[in-house]
């Protein structure tokens, strides 16, 4: 069973080719769609919702043809746009109830589902207040709620972490994960950052310039990729030696030590070594792939590409590789 299947899907505008013979199958679960801005992510979503005809090729969503069954697809799919889309002078409850009715839910069901869904996305008392006063994180939750309120079979989330701070980002990603694990709804989530989708997604599809660059399960990406960035207040050379002696692969990169994570014991070894030296541990975080590495297509050589933000050789096509996707490991 595939949730989304495209077959040499192309979309050409007079001046640009937004999608170029894209053939991809998306299976149930959480699928990350990664690409730089302008890679064709939004165009793909528009076509999948049956709102923009493909120039050539075919696409099926939940077994329905986008060219002919657009309305039916839109009844079964939820969509969360990238941009702000909430009127500031209505409350989240009123807004989501209205959107539920627009999806065909009878009035009573619309109210019940709105209350449930807002609670699931973590909006409580605030939901009766006008949305103009909401934080970005709360707005993103309402946007997600309106996409989920009619219990779709699939949701398309366009850059749901945009504008969120790191903590809000993690919460949103956790929420997206739950949309699949707890609610049983398949998710297609776009981002221009591979790193943040790695943890959330079962599958990753990478497109660039409207072409499929790579599609595979997340485990293939994460294999042998994890390394630990360690920053200590002093004596990093002694630490390097100690960790080396303990049998870990360690590289120095400026102030940072990059330690390959062999297993969970690695964290303990680093901690113990730092404690033994009696220095302060300023930072210990997992380093992950950045989108740049996908273009080199050498997943094993993570040490090189991870070596420092900006210092690494960045292929021209990966101009958007932004910010180290490190996250606190513990």
């Amino acid at each position: 069973m595939t949730v989304i299947a495209t077959e040499s899907l192309s979309k050409r505008y007079p001046r640009v080719t937004a999608l170029d013979r894209l053939t991809v199958d998306v299976t149930p679960g959480v699928t990350g769609l990664v690409g730089a801005n302008g890679a064709g992510k939004s165009t793909l979503i528009k076509i999948l919702l049956g709102l923009s005809p493909a120039t050539e090729g075919r696409a099926r969503v939940l077994g329905l043809d986008v060219a002919t069954d657009g309305a039916e697809i839109r009844g079964l799919v939820g969509y969360m746009p990238e941009h702000d889309c909430l009127p500031p002078d209505v409350s989240a409850t009123e807004f989501v109830v209205h959107m539920a009715r627009m999806s065909g839910l009878p009035p009573t069901a619309a109210r019940e589902r709105t209350a449930d869904t807002l609670r699931h996305v973590g909006l409580y008392e605030e939901r009766y207040r006008p949305m103009g006063g909401y934080s970005t994180g709360m707005k993103q939750r309402v946007k997600l709620a309106q996409a989920l309120v009619h219990d779709p079979k699939l949701v398309l989330l366009d850059e749901p972490t945009n504008g969120l701070d790191p903590a809000g980002r993690d919460e949103m990603l956790g929420l997206i994960r739950r949309v699949h694990t707890d609610f049983g709804i398949s998710v297609l989530v776009t981002s221009h950052l591979l790193g943040e989708l790695e943890r959330t997604s079962d599958h990753i599809v990478v497109i660039d310039g409207g072409k499929l660059l790579r599609a595979s399960s997340t485990s293939e990406f994460t294999q042998a990729t994890a390394s630990l960035a360690v920053e200590v207040t002093d004596r990093e050379h002694d630490l390097l030696a100690m960790l080396d002696a303990a049998g870990l692969t360690v590289q120095a990169s400026g102030h940072l030590l990059l330690v390959d994570i062999a297993d969970d014991g690695t964290y303990d070894l680093v901690r113990d070594a730092v404690a033994q030296l009696g220095v302060g541990l300023a930072r210990m975080e997992q380093r992950r792939h950045r989108i740049a590495e996908l273009f080199t297509d050498e997943t094993d050589e993570t040490d090189e590409t991870d070596a420092g933000d900006g210092a690494g050789t960045t292929p021209a096509a990966a101009g958007t590789a932004q910010e180290g996707d490190g996250r606190d490991a513990a």
């Binding site: 309305a71 009844g75 209205h98 009715r101 627009m102 999806s103 065909g104 839910l105 009878p106 069901a109 589902r113 449930d116 609670r119 699931h120 009619h150 219990d151 707890d182 609610f183 049983g184």
Partner: peptide, 24 residues
């Protein structure tokens, strides 16, 4: 545990949605 509940009820479609937008 008030977990996620699926919606099994009716989906009233376009005409109903149009009417809802009209009344709103």
């Amino acid at each position: 545990n008030i977990g996620y509940r699926e919606y099994e009820g009716p989906r009233l479609g376009r005409a109903y949605a149009r009417k809802s937008l009209f009344s709103q």
